[in-house]
Computed example of a mutant assay.
Amino acid sequence: MDPVGGRKIDRGPAGDGCPVRRGPDGTWRVTGYEQARTVLRSGGTVQAGLGIETVEKLPARFRRPVLYRDGPEHREHRRQTARFFTPRRVSEHYRDIMVRVAGEQLARLTRTGRADLPDLAFGLAIGVAAEVIGLTESRPGIQRRLDRFFPEKFGRPGFTSLTGIHWFFRQMRNWLAVYLADVRPAVRARRRDRRDDLISHLLDEGCTAGEILGECLTFAAAGMVTTREFVSVAAWHLFTDDDLRTRYRAAGEDERIALLHEILRTEPVIGGLKRRTTEPLRLDGDTIPAGELVELRIDAANLEPCEPPGLSFGDGAHKCPGAHIAILETDVFLSRLFALPGLRMATPPRVTRKAEIDSYELRNLVVTTSAPD
């Protein structure tokens, strides 16, 4: 399947034809699909990048979010929480939530006939992920708080400049706002009455409220922010490709989801992942020694023709657990959006890059419709 005419997001050169290469800075750069998948599935690597340097500075007694753990502890956590993310549970337990939240977001569009699509997509992603995580007692304004926590432009917190001090206190304020308005009410409710959600599971494991805040923000970044970008970029492809849009509208759910997977393969939200080797790793005749940093270029690896799906959700021990949720909620939303009468893209998106997480952001993608309320 290759329904996508080409990338809309400029990710730079795909590679030089060499799937494994050690750069002048000592970092190993992997652009081949099979080679990247081998690294992701290897038991001899650990997580690197994505702010892990900051997490490593936390006190030893503070339990790291699952994204930053490896080994037996990580595998056991994933085993115990896998039930929240199985395809069957996603379809049977979360589909109705997705339909409801998608309807609420599309109602914002149909009331006025005009809306910012990334804003609607963020409302969708927050509404769905909050139910899975257990952030259901939040005070009004969770979308605004998370927008502040994940700003379009990041500064570097620190104490050696006025800018660094500003960003330090800004982020501390944002942490506190999410904790007081979203996490603490959810934790208090579940201390009284456990529910079938992630926060209840974390409480059963003995996590403190601060540790639960860290997990919630990790899931917010992985399950809310990235989903917003994928919904937006998929909609952009559908708006600008008549054949793809016609096919998507006429297809059944299975085919629509396959089309979305293909768009995601072409436009991975996270363009690169990093791992550090803990033992020698053999790749294509090269041996990467222990202790080396390996950069996996997902945006390049995904362009290789191959039968398996791309690596946009990662692979191996750290493969995104919410993959089924993200794809299904995107289809629930877009299939309803593109059924609205008179739907059109009034303003194409402004695209920016986020070097901190090797991602893209789409903003100001304005859509209009003639659908009555």
Rank of each mutant, 00 (worst) to 15 (best):
M1C: 13
M1D: 10
P3Q: 04
G5I: 12
G6P: 02
I9N: 09
D10W: 01
R11S: 12
G12Q: 03
G12A: 03
G17I: 01
R22L: 11
G23H: 11
P24F: 15
W28I: 06
T31F: 08
Q35P: 06
T38E: 15
V39A: 09
L40K: 00
R41E: 12
L50G: 01
G51F: 01
G51K: 01
E53V: 09
E56T: 11
K57D: 07
L58Y: 08
P65S: 07
E73T: 06
A82S: 12
F85K: 02
S91Q: 10
Y94C: 03
D96I: 08
V99Q: 14
R100G: 03
L106K: 05
T110S: 07
T110I: 04
T110A: 04
G113W: 12
R114C: 13
R114M: 07
R114G: 09
A115W: 13
D119M: 12
L120H: 04
F122A: 09
I126S: 03
A129D: 00
A129K: 00
A130I: 02
E131Y: 02
T136R: 13
R139S: 12
R139W: 09
P140V: 11
Q143K: 15
R144W: 05
L146S: 06
F150W: 06
P157D: 04
H166G: 07
W167C: 00
R170F: 14
R170W: 14
Q171W: 12
M172L: 15
W175I: 05
W175Q: 07
A177H: 07
V178A: 04
D182H: 10
R184C: 11
R184D: 12
P185W: 10
A189V: 11
R191D: 08
R192Q: 14
R195E: 13
R195A: 15
D197P: 06
H201W: 15
L202F: 11
E205T: 05
G206D: 06
T208Q: 09
A209W: 08
A209N: 09
G210C: 02
L213D: 02
L213M: 14
T218K: 03
A222L: 11
G223R: 01
M224R: 09
M224C: 10
V225L: 14
T226P: 05
S232R: 02
V233C: 06
V233T: 08
A234K: 01
W236Y: 15
W236I: 03
W236F: 14
F239A: 05
D242K: 05
T246C: 13
Y248R: 02
A250W: 11
D254P: 06
R256I: 12
A258P: 02
L259N: 03
L260D: 05
H261F: 06
I263A: 10
P268N: 04
P268L: 10
I270E: 07
L273T: 07
K274Q: 14
R276I: 08
T278R: 12
D284P: 05
D286T: 10
D286I: 08
G291L: 03
G291R: 01
E292C: 09
V294N: 02
A301V: 06
A301G: 11
E307T: 14
P308N: 08
P309W: 03
S312Q: 13
D315F: 03
G316L: 00
K319G: 00
A326K: 02
A326R: 00
I327Y: 02
I327K: 00
L328I: 03
T330S: 14
F333P: 02
R336N: 15
R350Y: 08
R350N: 13
R353M: 12
Y360F: 15
N364H: 15
L365C: 12
S370T: 15
